[in-house]
Design a protein around this nucleic acid. Structure first.
Lengths: 130, 130
DNA sequence: GTAGCTGCAAACCTTTTGCGCGAAC
DNA sequence: GTTCGCGCAAAAGGTTTGCAGCTAC
C-alpha cells in the first residue's frame, strides 16, 4: 500500500482549484500556477488532480469521450463507473426545471441528468468494492 | 448557404446509432460499420455525427475536457454552451433521487445535474441566436 | 536509505482539418 | 458541370506514462 507524502505542488494545486471560481481544467490550473511555479509540469498537475479526486479531496466533472444518442426527447442517462457503459434510465426527466429562476442572468436551454452507478455485469464481477 | 445532399454513409451512421443500445461513441460507430463498409473513415463518422447533432437528428452527450471542483458536497452546475464556462447553480440537488428504484440491477452511487445555457457575458454579446 | 513525487519528453487517444477524387444533383 | 461529401493522412488538442533525479520521511 502506498503511503502518500506531503508535497508542496499538490497543496498549491489544491489551493488553485479552491481559489478559482471557474471549476478549472488541468490546463487552467497549470497556467494559473506557472507565474509562481515556473518549473511546474502539466503532467504533475494531472497526476495530482486525479490523485486528489480519487481521495475525495476534489470532485471531477465529465468524461473524456463524446457519446451519441438517437433518442431525441430529453431523458435521463446512467453511466457505469467501472466499464463506462451508458444506458437510458426509466426515471422522470423534468423539463419544468429549465424554467426555474436561475438568476444571475443565465438563459437556460436545457439540462442533463446523468446518474453514476455500477451496471449489473460489473456488479456481478466484484460485488464488494464500490 | 450549403444545401445538404443525401449520403449513403450518413444514413448508415445514423442507423448504427439508432440500432445500438449503448449510446455509442464515434469510435464505436466506426468499428460497428467497418465490417460492412471497409473503406469508411473515422473522420467521416465524426463529420456526420456532428452534422446530425447540429441538425437535431441526433443528441450528443458530454464535453471533452475534465473539470475539477473543490466544493465536495454534490451540487448542481451550469455550463455555457457558447464559451464553455462552468458555474455553480443555486438550485436544489436532491440526494433522494439516488434512492429511487432504478431497477435493472444497477447500483446507483450518485448523480450529476448539469444545466446548459448562455452565460450573461455571452448573452450580452449576441442576444439573438440561441 | 527508501519510496514517493517531480520535471521532462515521448507516447497515446480522441477529434479536427486540408486536399484531391468521387458522388449527388 | 457544379458542389458537396468521402477517404486518407497529417495535425491538433487533451491526457497519460516512463524515467532519472530530487524530496519527504
Amino acid at each position: 500500500m502506498k503511503v502518500q507524502r506531503f508535497s508542496q505542488q499538490r497543496e498549491r494545486i489544491y489551493e488553485a482549484v479552491r481559489a478559482s471560481m471557474e471549476h478549472p481544467s488541468a490546463q487552467m490550473v497549470y497556467e494559473a500556477l506557472r507565474p509562481e511555479m515556473p518549473r511546474l509540469s502539466l503532467g504533475t498537475v494531472y497526476r495530482n488532480l486525479h490523485q486528489m479526486a480519487q481521495e475525495g479531496r476534489l470532485r471531477e466533472l465529465e468524461g473524456p469521450v463524446a457519446r451519441f444518442d438517437a433518442v431525441l426527447p430529453p431523458h435521463t442517462h446512467i453511466r457505469c463507473i467501472r466499464c463506462g457503459q451508458v444506458a437510458d434510465l426509466a426515471l422522470p426527466y423534468d423539463p419544468a426545471l429549465d424554467w426555474e429562476p436561475a438568476g444571475d442572468g443565465w438563459a437556460i436551454t436545457g439540462h442533463e441528468l446523468v446518474f453514476n452507478g455500477v451496471c449489473p455485469a460489473c456488479g456481478a464481477e466484484q460485488p464488494s468494492e464500490i
